[in-house]
Design a protein around this nucleic acid. Sequence first.
DNA 1: CGGATGTGTAACCGCGACAGTTACCGTCGT
DNA 2: ACGACGGTAACTGTCGCGGTTACACATCCG
Lengths: 155, 155
Amino acid sequence: MAASCRFAFALHVLAVLAMHPGTGVTSKLLGASVNTHPVVIRRLISALRKAGFVCCASGAKGGATLCRPPEEISLDAIYQAIQPARAFAAHPQQPDAGCPVGRQIKTVLADVFSTAEQALHESLAQRTLADVVATMSEEVPSPLRTRPPRRAVRA
Amino acid sequence: MAASCRFAFALHVLAVLAMHPGTGVTSKLLGASVNTHPVVIRRLISALRKAGFVCCASGAKGGATLCRPPEEISLDAIYQAIQPARAFAAHPQQPDAGCPVGRQIKTVLADVFSTAEQALHESLAQRTLADVVATMSEEVPSPLRTRPPRRAVRA
DNA sequence: CGGATGTGTAACCGCGACAGTTACCGTCGT
DNA sequence: ACGACGGTAACTGTCGCGGTTACACATCCG
């Protein structure tokens, strides 16, 4: 399947932004935290910007900022903003229409694929970015935490 | 994500085998129905054989045969037999341990990923190969039908 | 104003996965 | 023995991705 790490990067970036509300975070800093090239971060942020999750400021003192409350950003919304392709792929060429399976397999596959993908989306939709941030604050009560932890809304 | 069509091919092949119980079906025939090269079919069948779903006969009059009842083969079992990689991928490089997100993101991601993958597997596990074959038999019962009432809605 | 600091995006490279293909060997029925 | 068939290795072309460089544009500050 050759899964990409876009979703992992996106969650990482958004979690950092959620922890620095109001202040713009540069792609250089984000790239250092994720351990990748700043341009990779900017490409990712470009998709997140189109989805309306972040806003960016150009020029010096610029950077990305979360422009929606983390509670309103579900992991499914992030996934759909990031992933360009479907989770499943059908036949690249048309199957043999002379075979009963070849005639009907596409319809059956479409049903199976959409059902499975919906299950995937529903699972991701049950958590928000705020949950992710809260989980990290819980697990390591480090002195870096300045604000009191938000209510944990784990299901 | 760059999904492969292995799963689609596997369902197609197993459906054909389920419709020809007992008789061996050659990779040449299966390749013609799927519209791909016989070696691609044989590679796929190699994985299905290791999973115990099909047996193959060598030599002349050889071919693949379903060696378990279709009711006992869930789509999830097929998926797991075919797919070599995970549906999600984590950071390829270690994130920055100096950042609180970088330290903990992997744990959170592992939880999110496993939950979503489990939802995917449970969705696929709810259908068996027999269901797929039955669906196809229903939708086109005989050439007496004038026109199929339903059409594929996916573009 | 002009340089420093950012973003935005295009272009390219290298890598890995995949489908497709060829080739060769082993196996089995006629 | 011969031909049909599976099993598998090896190679090719393509595609998507992460990584990188380069450049245009925007913004702040001295």
